[in-house]
Design a protein around this nucleic acid. Structure first.
Lengths: 252, 252
DNA sequence: GTGTTTATCGTCAGGCAGACGACTATGATC
DNA sequence: GATCATAGTCGTCTGCCTGACGATAAACAC
């Protein structure tokens, strides 16, 4: 394998972002409308080119900040504040995935608490939070009755992979807290699991599981009634990042 | 984000391979000796450039075949024959990871049964199976008493990530069968787990677990005494690719 | 035959999860 | 202010799975 600089084909390298949040009991992803061909006018995942002096994680964090204003956390630090969890997802490099040239995209997965309306370069109409079910259904109709066009490029596949990663990773890690604000109740955390998995969980067993796992939740002392009903204790995410034994996802 | 072809920096894209196997009760990885600078003479992971018309998975499969003669399986097909399991691991793109130019490497993880001596372009002395513990220890001495130099580039990190992926994935999937020949015994499969995890497992509980999981193992009817002792039943990997509940890895 | 090795079956106790009853503390409604 | 709806929290019970480990079976080496 000689390293003659003319011996290898040049690639463009991009980062694409699967930014997930939970809104109104539904798992939602950030989508931006494409302003130019190809796929002009279609929805796509946010992303952009990696710069010459930039690491892949840096590029992903920069794009995330540009699209949402979120700052990414250092992965070594437990999730806290209103920063987003950011991790590499997978890399997509089919020679025909972009009709213009050879592009390899390093997809990243970001998880964020519910946010105000997104911005795409300041233009709100070109960015939105959309339920992932809606973005992934092929050629159906959205909740507003309008026909749904599939995502641009191979972004439907990337989104599906990101959702699957999130669904499986909350089983055995504290990642679900990345969808919550700094302080949250057990019930709010349970609704995150229910939205991401699309199932109903028993509130009593869930409460026993999360409060019984050492280091998983740390009570802050405060309470809230923002969900109605009896006041609930407020917690912060504890230092434990691994959940052992894992939270069991009900089958079907 | 205009797509002016001059607006993005060109990258070289490579695939690097973490090829794992189990030899003599130890988890081993394929290492090749570098023939030219940088890191000339040092051990590295096998890999090479992605060609202009080639998918990432194709490039990884091609490199795997060139280095070992193994054919990779379609990931959708259950592990069988003597082909290797091949999956994408992660992508490494630090701007300084290669001193010559900007290289983004898409690392892949391959798992193979124990094989005859490797070949690197036909030159056996420039490729070997080395225990991962030996390749990952920093500046120590190998089992032959010779000083151990760290792997070239960031390959120690890539190898560590690949090993960690393998260790965690055999917990909840049938991936460990990828380390076994087509037909194998329960004891041979247990020794795979023991080598990958570096622990001792109770033969009776392991036997109960794997034979009691529907679809995990399919008896072929034959028996063998190649491990000595009482003849053991031979099995093939069943259709079940997920192990639920997972195999529990003993702590420490 | 005796000892060694490996495979395989069984038993028992502890832990955890699912199902679900009961009680508590708020706000909303009449 | 009584009642209701809503959500949170504590317990109980049962079944399943795991870890620990005894016992037996079937080969080979001597």
């Amino acid at each position: 394998m000689p390293y003659d600089p003319s011996a290898f084909p040049p690639f463009a390298v991009t980062v694409d972002l699967v930014v997930l949040t939970v809104r109104r009991h539904a798992l939602c992803a950030l989508a931006v409308r494409r302003g130019e061909p190809p796929f002009q006018g279609r929805w796509a995942l946010p992303g952009g080119f990696v710069r010459a002096d930039e690491d892949l994680a840096q590029a992903a964090a920069r794009e995330l900040a540009e699209e949402t204003g979120l700052r990414a956390h250092d992965p070594a630090v437990p999730v806290q504040d209103n920063g987003a969890h950011l991790e590499q997802l997978a890399t997509y490099g089919d020679p025909k995935r972009d009709p213009r040239m050879r592009v390899v995209s390093v997809a990243h997965l970001a998880l964020a608490p519910d946010l105000p309306a997104p911005r795409a370069g300041g233009d709100a109409s070109n960015a939105r939070w959309a339920p992932v079910d809606e973005l992934l259904q092929q050629g159906g109709y959205g909740r507003d009755g309008e026909p749904v066009a599939p995502l641009a490029f191979d972004h439907a596949q990337i989104l599906a992979d990101g959702v699957e990663r999130a669904r499986s990773k909350i089983e055995y890690s504290s990642l679900a807290t990345a969808f919550c604000p700094t302080e949250f109740t057990v019930g709010e955390l349970r609704r995150v699991y229910e939205a991401v998995w699309g199932v109903a969980l028993d509130p009593r067993n869930f409460h026993r599981k999360v409060t019984g796992t050492p280091g998983f939740l740390v009570p802050t002392g405060g309470t809230t009634t923002r969900q109605g009903g009896r006041p609930a204790q407020l917690f912060r995410a504890g230092g434990a990042t691994l959940l052992n034994p894992p939270m069991l996802r009900p089958e079907v």
